[in-house]
């Protein structure tokens, strides 16, 4: 092989290997920021204390309130996105005429292209006041409104991945169900959805991971009050919002308060890393069962 060929191949190889460096960089940054933090704050306190007040005079470093805020907004988002997204997937697959399907899918995809800061604006200034008409106790900042908006944002994620999973189920199964006299509904939910369940579960896990890491919607509309609660009507704070809050303030570099964002970041990273790898594992284990 000519030297120039070899040289180019090395350059391309370097570009590919940079992706490994990014992962190493992320882990290194999170560890080097949070190891000094955990030398001052014990891991047990971090995981079990019920208050998160690193920016106050009376400091407490319990991550649970931030985890609760993240869990609450994510749960609301999935409670909205899963039924609607799955119904849309089934509807488009079994019921909708081809023309409708072709026009509706790109329009739904628009939901996924809108920047999240726009959703945050809409949640705070439109959805929250709208919900306050029906729910008198709803605070101006709350978990409910950003949760719902986040749910609508991830509908296309669940609907398109689930639809792919459902439409890759072999036709013979569907025809057999119809041949036995099933209605479309029975065929969909007793044959197709169970057969596509691994793909649907993967779509839901990826949606959860997305909601856990979502930042701007909750930073704008959910408030900045870490609170160990599952009440969707009061202000809460998510892990991501906390990182934004500290970044906007003027916490001195290298201080304990500054390091809290890396401790919070490592918790966030572990959650999303775990969820993503769970989805890869399910995909690999159950893929191509019918081939």
């Amino acid at each position: 092989m000519k030297a120039s060929e070899k040289f180019i191949e090395t350059l391309l190889w370097l570009a590919a290997v940079i992706t490994i460096l990014i992962t190493v960089g992320i882990i290194w940054v999170l560890l080097s920021g949070s190891i000094p933090f955990f030398q001052e704050v014990s891991v047990v306190d971090f995981l079990t204390e019920k208050e998160w007040t690193p920016l106050f005079a009376q400091k407490h470093f319990g991550i649970l309130p931030l985890v609760a805020g993240t869990f609450l907004t994510t749960a609301i988002a999935i409670a909205v996105a899963l039924p609607i997204g799955l119904t849309i997937a089934v509807y488009l697959n079994e019921y909708a005429p081809g023309g409708l399907k072709r026009t509706i899918k790109p329009i739904l995809e628009v939901l996924a292209t809108i920047p999240t800061v726009v959703y945050g604006f809409f949640a705070l200034t439109v959805v929250t006041p709208f919900l306050q008409n029906f729910i008198p106790g709803l605070a101006g900042f709350n978990a409910l409104s950003p949760g719902i908006v986040m749910g609508i944002m991830i509908i296309p994620m669940i609907s398109s991945l689930s639809e792919d999973a459902i439409s890759s189920v072999p036709k013979a199964l569907k025809e057999a169900a119809y041949g036995m006299g099933s209605t479309r509904l029975q065929t969909a939910f007793r044959v197709m959805v169970p057969a596509a369940s691994s793909g649907i579960i993967v779509s839901v896990i990826l949606a959860i991971s997305r909601a856990v890491g979502e930042t701007m919607i909750v930073a704008i509309a959910a408030g900045q009050q870490p609170r160990l609660t599952l009440n969707p009507l009061v202000p809460v704070e998510t892990i991501t919002t906390y990182i934004v809050q500290v970044s906007l303030g003027d916490v001195p570099h290298g201080s304990l308060e500054y390091r809290t964002i890396f401790a919070a970041g490592i918790v966030l990273f572990i959650f999303t890393f775990g969820l993503n790898n769970l989805s890869f594992w399910i995909k690999k284990k159950y893929q191509e069962k019918y081939d």
């Binding site: 590919a16 290997v17 992706t19 490994i20 990014i22 992962t23 960089g25 992320i26 940054v29 999170l30 080097s32 920021g33 990826l206 991971s209 856990v212 890491g213 979502e214 930042t215 991501t240 990182i243 934004v244 970044s247 964002i261 890396f262 970041g265 966030l268 990273f269 999303t272 890393f273 969820l275 993503n276 790898n277 890869f280």
Partner: peptide, 22 residues
């Protein structure tokens, strides 16, 4: 490399912010 890239695609954007900051 493939698994790693799939993983990177799932890392929340704010974590990239922490990487960039440091």
């Amino acid at each position: 490399l493939e698994i790693n890239i799939a993983n990177l695609a799932g890392v929340p954007s704010i974590i990239y912010g922490l990487l960039g900051l440091e």
